[in-house]
Computed example of a mutant assay.
Amino acid sequence: MSTTIELNASVRTEVGKGASRRLRHADKVPAVLYGAGKDAVALTLEHNKVLQAQEHEHFYSQVLHLNIDGEKVEAIVKDMQRHPFKPKVTHLDFQRVSADQALHTTVPVHFLNEEAATKAGGVVSHHIAEIEVSCLPKDLPEFIEVDVAGLSVGETLHLTDVKFPAGVSSVELAKGADHDVAVVTIDKPKGAAEDDAEEEAAEE
Rank of each mutant, 00 (worst) to 15 (best):
L66A: 09
K78A: 03
Q95M: 04
G70L: 07
N113P: 09
V50D: 10
S170V: 04
A26V: 03
L66F: 03
V29N: 11
G122I: 01
A201G: 12
A166K: 10
F85G: 07
G167I: 04
L66Y: 05
N48D: 15
N67D: 14
D187T: 03
L64M: 02
D187G: 01
R82S: 13
T106V: 07
K72W: 00
Q62K: 07
V11Q: 05
K38Y: 09
L103E: 06
Q81C: 04
L173S: 09
E172S: 09
G122N: 07
L43W: 10
Y60T: 03
A174R: 07
I76L: 05
V29W: 04
H110D: 01
G18K: 15
I128N: 14
K175I: 05
E142A: 08
D196V: 12
P84S: 13
G18D: 14
F59N: 12
K78E: 00
L140D: 08
L140Y: 02
K163H: 14
V15P: 11
V171E: 04
V11P: 10
S152G: 07
I131L: 00
D79F: 01
K78S: 09
R24K: 05
H47G: 11
E199N: 12
H91Q: 11
P30L: 08
S20I: 03
V183F: 02
T118W: 03
E200S: 12
D100E: 06
D161E: 06
Q81T: 10
L66E: 05
H127M: 03
A99P: 09
L140F: 14
A19R: 02
S125W: 01
M1E: 02
V162W: 03
A129L: 11
T160D: 08
A202L: 11
G121A: 04
N113G: 09
R82Q: 13
L173Y: 09
A99K: 13
